[in-house]
Nucleic acid binder design. Structure first.
Lengths: 211, 211, 211, 211
DNA sequence: CATGAATGAGGCTTCATTCAT
DNA sequence: GATGAATGAAGCCTCATTCAT
């Protein structure tokens, strides 16, 4: 009954929880599908990727896909949620114990760049999420922003940062990270060079103004 | 999505120059299509928008579309090129004559935010361009970056800016602008609030570090 | 009102006589269209050729086509009729005055091969005529066969040819000519080689059987 | 005709091998499509036949077609290959064991005529193959010619046939067969009459010249 | 005579999804 | 759990033809 991914239907989606495998064989199949999806989406983008592409890469039959996921949109959403979760975990682990905010920012950028390099396949299409599921898209960035906001607020209260609007700072930092990552990691497939990292840190901490 | 648009074919596109209307009636129709496309793409995104959507909104027959554009991709590319051109023009006009770099940046951000507010329909999908035509996408940002780089270099030589890598600065500034614009203009449909503007300027010019 | 070339409608066609130009300027345009059509049909075949192709090659506007011809099918039919007429004329001129039937056949084959070489563009698609206008197709070959039948009958009565069914002989001769022409002229774009011509004549006059 | 089938793309075709059904149900569907295609192509010709025509006649959904064949061109090519294969098999079986070349030719013609009568649907459009896939077209006739050439050469060496160019003889024989078949089988839907068969055999073996 | 914009029916193809096995 | 055949809606695009200028 070909419904085509008609409009966002987050409510329904929340209900129709993705199938939970009961056996280890099932769990393996499910994982194969997720791995395949990550690669396929990354290479072709969400819209050009087809579920046949995914099942082919996963080495399972087309029907098998629907045993584990209600639809194309759902496996994508799961990947995005995982991505968000993993990124936040990696960052928070990396900065735990650091005392200076300067170090926190430096580590944060570095971890972010290495994260998107590792997950460049999927990260490449983050922006498409907006047109797959707008709520999911906002959720992704808001969730990320939250972490920043807290840290930034603490730094301001501790006197390490000047007093500015924390949310704006959070989005600005994310913007910088994304664009620098895009320029070197996604476009060139390379690490962000040291001079760029230094420049970013210099800009962020001390601004552009000469003295 | 039933696309087809087989891979990027920039070579072919360069050749098959968009049709040049020979009468004013034709020119009007072409413009109707362009306007309709801008709105439709903005609302549904590139992939979910169909050329039927566009012709319906433009009030012409489906076949008429193909009198003026070789395909869906081409009208999109033209819109992106226009967008880029207009944005650069508006910014350069706005900063002409300004002497202090601080003012240039302030004006630049302000103009950018009002620009994407005016063209929020189309701007909303800039990121999708990458999956429609990767070269076009890179061209868009590189072209934008160029302008920045020159200005930033001049400011460094003039002693107004500290010495940092100009390209990195350019991408960082674009990232900030995009994310702040996304947060308030695209998500909320509002102007960027003064506190955000101030924060951005403060960050950019003087950094986050206290004193 | 897109009718698409629906079914053969020879009756209607006979009525809707192709437009007769009244001025020499008009006659020139008409001829440009016919020339262009011959080439375009020859290269792309009837079905893949479009009337835009023809008007483009002729250097006139699309609408102009319909000033001179009721439709795509009609210009094609006219070309086929011309072809048939010219071929018959060339052959009959070439064999006029020849006394021996052997010479008549030899000349006939030679003229046919040089004719299709000259008109290979159009001749290449003779077989498609069947699916454009079945009656026209049969008319073409029947008309050609007629000439043969008369000559063959005369040769039989004159004792030059053995007594066989003249119509069968006519079609057999046409088949030989077409296939030999196809093999060397249409496929290779060359003249039919002497050895082939000799073989054909030997076969036709004296058969394959070793004395 | 709204085709699309962009130029000959034999390379791609070689790769995208027609789908091999994995179940008997699938095999049955595939065969239904092949049968329907043979009829539809025969009646309407390749270009006027649509894949909807085929699926309707086969009683399956339009999409099902593409489960088994990459496109219209491909099912057609398969039919042509089958046709060629079957024809050669039937002829070679029929002449196996015959000692006199005269008998071989007589049987060959007879089998050919009954073959095209049985497959008149498809055979009717053999000539269109040239404009669908030129290579396939030449392959068809060259392959057929090969068989003839060998037989003819053997007959010459055995002293049964006069020494002539074997390839020319092969194409001439094919031409005769096609045109006689066209005249009676394809045009009239009848068997080739005895008088025509006799005439053909007479011509071929002993020529037209009166002793 | 000539032009070129406009039309809309119709063709090919893709693909998310369902379902019987 | 897994399979793979089947579906049909929907998308892109072509083109013969009409018509106002």
């Amino acid at each position: 009954m070909s419904t085509k991914e008609s409009a966002n239907n987050s409510a329904a989606k929340a209900q129709a929880k993705d199938f939970q495998a009961k056996t280890s064989r099932g769990e393996a199949t499910r994982q194969k599908l997720l791995d395949a999806a990550e690669e396929v989406f990354g290479v072709k983008g969400y819209f050009r990727a087809s579920v046949v592409d995914i099942t082919l890469k996963a080495g399972v039959a087309q029907g098998t896909f629907y045993v584990y996921f209600p639809g194309k949109q759902d496996i994508f959403a799961e990947l995005v949620r995982e991505l968000n979760h993993d990124l936040r975990r990696e960052i928070s682990q990396a900065v735990t114990g650091l005392t200076s905010r300067r170090e926190v920012e430096a580590r944060g950028f570095a971890v972010f760049f290495s994260f998107i390099r590792k997950h460049s396949n999927l990260y490449r299409i983050m922006q498409q999420v907006e047109f797959v599921d707008e709520d999911l898209f906002k959720w992704y960035y808001r969730r990320l922003a939250q972490g920043y906001v807290q840290g930034v607020e603490a730094a301001m209260e501790g006197g390490e940062f000047r007093r500015l609007d924390p949310e704006t700072v959070a989005y600005a930092l994310m913007g910088i990270a994304e664009f620098i990552g895009m320029r070197w990691v996604l476009w060139e497939g390379k690490d962000v060079p040291a001079k760029a990292l230094d420049t970013v840190m210099g800009m962020v901490m001390d601004g552009l103004h000469a003295d």
